[in-house]
């Protein structure tokens, strides 16, 4: 579609009406801000923003309703993380087993470098265990770089409990019901 530009009238060519209009608008805004108190900004450290419920802040690890670590160190978040902020050390063959039945493993160490994190939420999206969530913290500050590398304990403490379907527990219960299983090996 071609829209032909309408030629300007002489009055418009003078620019004066447009200038007056601009002055009027800016004056109105200045007046409202100054005397009617209609400013749109907040004074941040004193006034805090009410974070919307689906806000994506810093990623933290969560526990299930039994207080067990949900993460099984599948390292998909480490793989998908665009800025490579996540570093997971898997338990290894002799490592600590998971703190709940059937899950077999959990991370020995789980570190998120909050300086690198870009809050994209890919870790949350990719997590097959619903173990990592972008929660509401948006102002992560610290005194040193090292302080902002959050380890497993810190992430779990900050993440809190997030109830969900307990896949591994369910499997363990299902297997228990099949105790008359005919295999003897």
């Amino acid at each position: 579609m071609i829209v032909n530009r309408r030629p300007l009238t002489f009055w418009e060519k003078l620019y004066l009406p447009a200038i007056m209009g601009g002055l009027k608008v800016t004056m109105r805004h200045a007046w409202r801000t100054l005397f009617a108190g209609k400013k749109v900004t907040m004074e941040y450290p004193e006034q805090k923003w009410a974070v919307p419920p689906d806000y994506r802040g810093a990623p933290y690890l969560v526990r299930d309703q039994d207080g067990s670590t949900k993460c099984v160190s599948c390292q998909l978040c480490e793989f998908v993380c665009p800025p490579k902020a996540i570093k997971i050390i898997p338990p290894g063959p002799a490592g600590q087993i998971a703190d709940r039945a059937n899950a077999e493993k959990m991370p020995r160490e789980f570190e998120i470098n909050m300086l690198r994190c870009i809050y994209c939420g890919m870790c949350q999206e990719v997590c097959p265990e619903e173990a990592i969530f972008l929660l509401k913290d948006y102002s992560i500050t610290g005194q040193s770089r090292q302080e902002l590398v959050f380890n497993k304990e810190k992430l779990l403490a900050l993440g809190g409990v997030h109830p969900g379907i307990q896949k591994w527990k369910h499997k363990a219960e299902e297997a228990k019901e099949q105790e008359n299983f005919p295999v003897k090996v």
């Binding site: 599948c74 390292q75 998909l76 793989f79 898997p90 063959p93 077999e104």
Partner: peptide, 12 residues
């Protein structure tokens, strides 16, 4: 493998 068990994901 017991030796490689839970050591590293293969895609890395």
């Amino acid at each position: 493998s017991k030796d490689f068990r839970f050591k590293m994901r293969v895609w890395f």
